[in-house]
């Protein structure tokens, strides 16, 4: 600054100009990012889901283990249901989901996963008992998985095809088990 004071009519020093423009662009970039975030909603069909690991609730197991690694489910249709015990619409679909699961229970090619969003242990376990839910369920530790899917609320259900790509997103509850069948079955075609 001090050396430029000699000039009789000084404009803004170039380095400050550069700084101002960089700052302005960074700010606009950040806002653009925020805006995109706000508008894009959940992950969309076709997106690849990053890997995550679930630690199941006590009393739940998958393939004899109490942990499920998403990447190890490649080759299967994965149905990921986000729910919470405080969520009334979740209760509407709980029985339907369980029914659908029992239909596929013996089919090696289908996995159901329940992920409990922003919930506390006691009511969550109560909910699982009340609706007699048998498919693997886990709390969303650190809200990490729900952030991966950018969920907007509960219930939301994500259908992942055998290639690990998201193929369908259901926002809100299912009306019937048949509805769930109609989404899974096409994915099972070889």
């Amino acid at each position: 600054m001090s050396e430029s004071t000699v000039a009789p009519r000084r404009g803004m020093p170039v380095w400050i100009q550069v700084l101002v423009w960089v700052g302005l662009l960074a700010l606009l970039g950040l806002v653009a990012f925020g805006l995109r975030r706000a508008q894009q909603g959940t992950v969309q069909p076709g997106d690849t889901i990053p890997d995550f690991t679930l630690t199941l609730f006590d009393g739940y197991q998958y393939a004899g283990k109490s942990e499920v690694k998403f990447s190890e489910l490649r080759g299967k249709v994965v149905v990921i249901n986000f729910w919470a015990s405080w969520c009334k619409p979740c209760e509407q679909e709980a029985a339907e989901l369980e029914t659908a699961w029992r239909d596929y229970q013996d089919d090696e090619r289908v996995v159901f996963l329940g992920i409990d969003y922003t919930d506390t242990p006691t009511p969550a376990l109560g909910y699982l008992t009340k609706f007699e839910i048998t498919y693997p369920n886990s709390p969303d530790l650190g809200s990490r998985v729900s952030q991966l899917f950018r969920i907007k609320g509960v219930p939301e259900t994500y259908f992942v095809d055998p290639d690990g790509k998201l193929s369908y997103v259901q926002v809100g509850p299912f009306a019937s088990a048949a509805e769930i069948h109609s989404i899974i079955d096409p994915l099972l075609k070889p």
């Binding site: 919470a84 015990s85 405080w86 922003t118 919930d119 506390t120 242990p121 006691t122 009511p123 809200s143």
Partner: peptide, 27 residues
Amino acid sequence: FCPVCENTPLDVCPTEACRQWRALIRE
């Protein structure tokens, strides 16, 4: 702060989720 009602402290948040959280704190 509960993620369900953003920017509202848990002690004054009226949602069911937050009520459960307070119950957990009590536990």
